[in-house]
Design a protein around this nucleic acid. Structure first.
Length: 901
DNA sequence: AGTTCGACTTAGCAGGCGTGCA
DNA sequence: TGCACGCCTGCTAAGTCGAACT
């Protein structure tokens, strides 16, 4: 939408980032009806956009094989298991080249239709007999031909034909038909029909009533039995037992402290249950609904074709959602616009403007009056006095208080996301086909709550009745609903610090630690399987190699109605490129549409395999691992080790890498230096897991500022050198190293710098003069005459003139008392400052697009941090935020300084 | 066996807030 | 003392994975 003259085009003027419109603007305003969207709103979605795949820009080759997390994590930063392309990353955003590059996915069905016969016929068996030959026309005709298409590798390394052989080489049964229209069609259809069957709402509990209670009852029995012989199982978990025995000493002191603060439930000291029954009593207030929509003041109206529209609250609210987003990228996004406008029009259909104007073009919509209103409101809010702000916050706290905690088996536990999600426009990430779609306002009738049988059923804070009330004690959620945009389930759970979350978190890390004992065998196995004659095995081994070495995610299949992102099993032909002799270039969009772009050197066999998996007749849009899916992979892993799945490798490798990296901590360093080492280790892990963040807006500027600071230091150093040489010309030869000019000290910078210094000096002198006079006045003395200041300013200017002269003559009059020794010392100090500033700079640069938090929260066993903190005597609060400490109390209790992952 | 569902973990974004610096 | 800036937190989207359903 680029109509330079349309009202909407005004939106595109750069606008300050705005705070998202919140729905709490004024709780005291009158209540207004909440709307219920018409069913047809949910209907058809705009066709998904084709997507362009950026051409890979490669950087930083990495030898994965030798730096894989488990192989060695060397002390040097080169030892990172992998490294990322600098700058090139970023979530994939709509690209203008879109049209030229058809959506891979989309292309598939077409390729499918055509490709079937063509490929099948073209690829004769004799085509393939070499190692580098492809698997024969795999998955060509989908199911029917599948078993016939299978080819085995007839000897260790080489692929050759033996079509008749191998029952065992069945492809994954289903094997998406050829270039696959994907199962998602069916899925989408099913979803659609489900959505249209409105009766769903009316008989909400039918299913649940059947399933849940039964489960619950069963579980309840087993739980009571469990209680009687609680330790039977425990005994098996010997390791944890040993730990428990050791502990009491350490704990006693701690206990006192903790109990003072608040009686905390120390679940990690309790016997473990069997994990199926989660609670016996459960009391809570479910969700807090946001206040109803408050119509805008009468004079705030969006315009259509220049005419102000008087909208009913229902449609005004939707207009406001868009209006509040002016200035963001979303507003300029075509898909976002289309989805929004479709839903907005539908809303207008039902709640038309008073003026009777038919809204047919988004370009004619001008939401700026709304935007400006929100801006004003925001300013007002900001300008409120402390008391007003506090009053507002108190009111909010009061409102939320009943929802903050749940009571579980008599214990108080903090609830997590108890606020019902307010309505708004769906902000899907990357190229999500539904971004911009209206997310409806939730009513009690949308929400199912899960609560104890004897617990009072909470009353919603807005009129209405819960969609359902169930008592399933095998699950941990308090409330749940389906959102309308993607028809996905949303849950209210307890907070991260709760026993439930803590227990499963700990179990996760224990599982990852268990992998330590199996990983050697697993690696051996997959290394052998890389040469397997059975394609499926070879693919599985290769995939596992990537999951293990590159920390790729499993990569489930995705539907057409989601952003096109992939993980290991769903990698497609175009996502990996081979560069002989042994380099593989990955370039794809992973979770959250974050780009994964790496060049890695792989084992020769892996390289060979990829070549085979990519061979004709495969092409763009085809699965790289056509005989593999996550279910199969995880089944295999589970056979290797109970409870093992692909994601465990990420946890294991992250924690393991972290622990290895921490060995670089300087034993005698300052706390700061130690923390720096800690953060470096953290960063390595974040890079391993490809955790990214957008570079902050002001980064370029602030980085340039830093660079200037470094240069200013160099400038000072230069002056010191000149003094030195003026004082003792012999030094020029003696210390030839000091005769060299500082790097990036060009004339232009120096001039600018000197001017800035002058400016500052003048300013400072003026201020000082004023201050002095104020003081004099206070003490009732005579003020200094203005002429004194003028003299001073002249003096300063003269001094600064000398600067440029000094620069040109490269000679500086030594300061009073200067000696060669003193100057040399000063220069050394300056060198240190420069070096430190440079380190800081490169650090900032390296970290600008790496998100450290995610790995800390989810992947790094917190006990590693606790142990490290104890060992190196670093206060834990410097490593963990309050929230993290609340999340990991068990780690603090459990890990002493000798603890190892 | 394939597909969908359910429950739970993992993820980046954006706004608020505290802090360090000029 | 004000203000930029970076960190923290809340929010909710987007994954994983096993079980249930068809």
């Amino acid at each position: 939408m680029s109509l330079p003259f349309s009202p909407l085009s005004k939106l595109y003027r750069p606008l300050p980032i705005l705070q998202l419109y919140r729905h709490y603007i004024s709780p005291s305003r009158p209540i207004c009806v909440s709307f219920r969207p018409s069913p047809h709103l949910q209907a058809s979605m705009a066709a998904s956009q084709p997507m362009a795949v950026e051409a890979p820009t490669l950087a930083h080759p990495v030898d994965v094989a030798s730096h894989a997390p488990h192989v060695n994590v060397s002390a040097s930063s080169n030892g990172r298991p992998n490294s990322r392309t600098n700058g090139a990353r970023k979530r994939y955003e709509e690209s203008s080249s879109e049209d030229e590059k058809p959506l891979a996915k989309k292309a598939r069905p077409v390729a499918n239709g055509n490709g079937n016969t063509a490929r099948g016929a073209a690829a004769s068996d004799s085509d393939l007999s070499e190692d580098d030959q492809p698997l024969a026309k795999k998955k060509v005709n989908g199911r029917t031909s599948a078993s016939k298409e299978i080819r085995d590798y007839s000897d260790d390394d080489d692929v050759s034909e033996s079509a008749s052989e191998s029952e065992s080489d069945e492809p994954l049964a289903k094997k998406k038909p050829a270039a696959k229209p994907r199962s998602s069609n069916a899925k989408a259809q099913a979803k659609k029909s489900a959505a249209t069957s409105s009766s769903e709402d009316e008989k909400p509990l039918a299913k649940r009533a059947k399933a849940a209670p039964k489960k619950a009852v069963k579980k309840e029995y087993s739980s009571s039995e469990e209680d009687e012989k609680p330790l039977a199982k425990k005994a098996k978990a010997s390791s944890s037992k040993v730990k428990e025995e050791k502990k009491p000493v350490v704990k006693k002191e701690k206990k006192v402290k903790e109990e003072e603060q608040e009686e905390q439930f120390k679940w990690w000291e309790q016997a473990e249950g069997d994990g199926t029954v989660k609670w016996t009593t459960l009391v809570h207030n479910a969700v807090l609904f946001p206040p109803p929509y408050v119509p805008l003041p009468k004079d705030v109206k969006m315009k259509y074709d220049g005419v102000p529209l008087t909208l009913p609250p229902e449609s005004e609210e939707v207009a406001g959602f868009f209006g509040a987003m002016l200035g963001t990228d979303h507003v300029e996004d075509k898909v976002f616009q289309a989805n929004f406008f479709r839903d907005f029009k539908a809303m207008l259909e039902q709640y038309p403007p008073k003026e009777g104007i038919k809204v047919t073009s988004l370009e004619k919509c001008d939401f700026r009056p709304m935007y400006e209103h929100f801006e004003r409101e925001r300013e007002k809010k900001k300008a409120m006095s402390k008391e007003e702000k506090k009053a507002l916050k108190d009111a909010k706290d009061e409102l939320e208080r009943p929802y903050l905690y749940a009571e579980i088996d008599g214990r108080k536990e903090k609830a997590g996301n108890f606020r019902a999600e307010p309505p708004g426009l769906f902000r899907g990430r990357g190229e999500h086909p539904r971004k911009g779609t209206l997310k409806h306002r939730l009513r009690p009738e949308d929400i199912i709550i899960n609560i104890g049988k004897d617990a009072p059923i909470p009353k919603p804070n807005i009129p209405g009745n819960w969609k359902g009330v169930q008592h399933d004690n095998t699950v941990t959620w308090l409330a749940h609903w389906k959102e309308n945009v993607n028809n996905q389930a949303k849950y209210v759970f307890l907070s991260a610090g709760s026993a439930w979350k803590g227990q499963s978190d700990r179990a996760k890390f224990e599982k990852a630690r268990e992998l330590i004992n199996h990983v050697d065998q697993i690696r051996k196995d997959y290394t052998v399987d890389l040469k397997s004659k059975i394609t499926a095995e070879r693919q599985r081994a290769t995939a596992l190699y990537f999951i293990d070495r590159l920390a790729l995610r499993a990569g489930n299949e995705k539907g057409e109605d989601e952003a096109d992102t992939v993980g290991c099993c769903s990698l497609r032909y175009e996502h990996v490129t081979l560069e002989p002799p042994n380099k593989v270039i990955f370039d794809f969009l992973g979770k959250d549409s974050m780009r994964f772009h790496q060049e890695v050197e792989v084992d020769a066999q892996v390289f060979k395999n990829i070549k085979i998996f990519k061979a004709e007749p495969k092409g763009k849009g085809d699965d790289l691992f056509d005989r593999l899916n996550t279910t199969g992979l995880n089944k295999y892993l589970n056979d290797q080790m109970k409870g093992l799945s692909a994601k465990v490798f990420r946890t294991y490798n992250a924690s393991w890498t972290f622990q290895q990296q921490l060995k670089n901590t300087p034993k005698n360093g300052s706390v700061q230096e130690k923390i720096a080492a800690y953060n470096t280790a953290n960063r390595e892990v974040a890079i391993l897991c490809n955790h990214q963040k957008t570079v902050s807006k002001g980064f370029a500027e602030s980085f340039a500022k830093m660079a200037d600071k470094v240069r200013a230091l160099k400038y000072q150093r230069m002056k010191l050198r000149y003094q030195l040489f003026t004082l003792e010309p012999k030094m020029k030869k003696k210390r030839a190293d000091l005769a060299e000019t500082e790097s990036d000290m060009d004339e232009e910078f120096m001039e600018r710098h000197e001017e800035e210094l002058l400016e500052k000096a003048l300013e400072a002198a003026k201020k000082k003069f004023e201050r002095d006079n104020v003081k004099l006045e206070e003490s009732q003395e005579k003020k200094k005459p203005k002429s004194e200041l003028d003299d001073r300013l002249k003096e300063i200017k003269a001094e600064f003139k000398a600067l440029s002269k000094e620069r040109k003559t490269k000679s500086v009059e030594p300061k009073k008392g200067a000696t060669v020794e003193k100057l040399l010392e000063q220069i050394t100090k300056m060198d240190e400052r420069i070096a430190a500033a440079k380190v800081q700079m490169s650090d900032r640069d390296k970290t600008k697009d790496v998100a450290l938090g995610t790995s800390k929260i989810n992947y790094i066993d917190p006990r590693i941090t606790v142990a490290w903190a104890k060992k190196y005597d670093v206060p834990l609060e410097k490593l963990f935020t309050k929230a993290l400490r609340e999340k990991f109390p068990w780690a603090e209790a459990e890990a002493d300084e000798d603890w190892v992952f």
